[in-house]
């Protein structure tokens, strides 16, 4: 008994226990991924039959397509703005809820609830909230007609998406960040306070450095999440419009593949999106992750 890890009585038992999950992952993740890679090198007819190998033709076509780059650019803008807000806002809320102020225990509960709402439902609700005639911004249009028009103005539609995404991201990030804050020993604050550090100083020099692992986790998850999970919001709020202003890469893939029957083009873009997400996570770990001190 030199190892302190758990031991199984039978050598096949652990494999057997893992097998169901492995099969599911294989079936619903790796198989489609392999299929997408395969199709990205072929011109595929929707109903099958007569697919032909075209090498890297699909990739050179996608790379030369300005619409692909526009969608990529929009994805990047969304990723940076929405992720940053989706971490900063919960951070503010978490710091506030962590302080011993009135009703903070209640807030800690209430802020978690939206986690249970599906993306599509959030989309439907926000489409209503931001409706230019009956939504909360409708008075704005009474004073300045046409100022808020998400059905016509791409920027307004984009803002709607970001707000909906940030709102739906609050619960999870809030929980993670609050847990991080709660784990900071109280004596550190007391010591800092004794040394004359005000609340701002304590946040900047104590709390933020100490919850760096949690901040890093939420950022990594948000960056990758914002690229893919925004689909439900786009599909329910804007359908990629107006004028393609909210056609992010993930939605373009769906529209090309499922609405346009362009299986090869959609697969090629899927492969490129996948590579991009992997590279992104890799970069974050390489440049950010290394500077984080997990020990306390």
């Amino acid at each position: 008994m030199t190892s302190d890890s758990a031991r199984f009585g039978h050598r096949w038992l652990p494999i057997l226990l893992v097998l169901p999950l492995m099969i599911l992952i294989l079936l619903f993740f790796y198989a489609p991924v392999i299929q997408a890679f395969y199709w990205s090198f072929f011109l595929e007819q929707p109903f099958g039959g007569g697919s032909q190998f075209v090498g890297f033709d699909n990739f050179s076509r996608v790379l030369a397509d300005p619409e692909f780059w526009r969608a990529t650019w929009r994805t990047l803008i969304f990723m940076v703005t929405a992720s940053a807000l989706a971490v900063v806002l919960p951070l503010v809320l978490a710091i506030a809820a962590d302080r011993q102020i009135r009703l903070s225990p209640v807030a800690r509960n209430v802020l978690v609830w939206p986690k249970g709402v599906a993306g599509a439902s959030i989309g439907v609700v926000f489409a209503f909230i931001f409706n230019p005639f009956v939504g909360i911004l409708a008075p704005l249009n009474n004073w300045f007609p046409g100022l808020w028009a998400p059905g016509l103005d791409g920027v307004d539609a984009f803002i709607t998406l970001i707000v909906a995404h940030v709102w739906s991201g609050i619960p999870f990030n809030f929980v993670i960040l609050l847990a991080g804050l709660r784990a900071v020993p109280h004596t550190l604050y007391q010591a800092a306070a004794l040394d004359g550090a005000g609340p701002w100083r304590r946040i900047r020099d104590l709390q933020l450095p100490l919850i760096a692992p949690q901040l890093f986790l939420t950022l990594v998850l948000e960056f990758t999440e914002s690229i893919t999970s925004v689909f439900a919001l786009i599909d329910t709020i804007t359908k990629g419009g107006p004028g393609g202003a909210t056609t992010l890469l993930v939605y373009k893939i769906y529209a090309d593949g499922f609405r346009g029957y362009d299986l090869s083009g959609a697969s090629t873009q899927t492969v490129m999106l996948m590579i991009f997400v992997v590279l992104l996570a890799g970069c974050q770990f390489a440049f950010l992750g290394r500077r984080i001190n997990y020990e306390r």
Binding site: L152, D153, G240, G241, G243, T247, R259
Partner: peptide, 12 residues
């Protein structure tokens, strides 16, 4: 869809 996308930009 392309037609709708491009003409929407003209409407706007």
């Amino acid at each position: 869809e392309i037609f709708m996308e491009e003409t929407q930009k003209a409407w706007a």
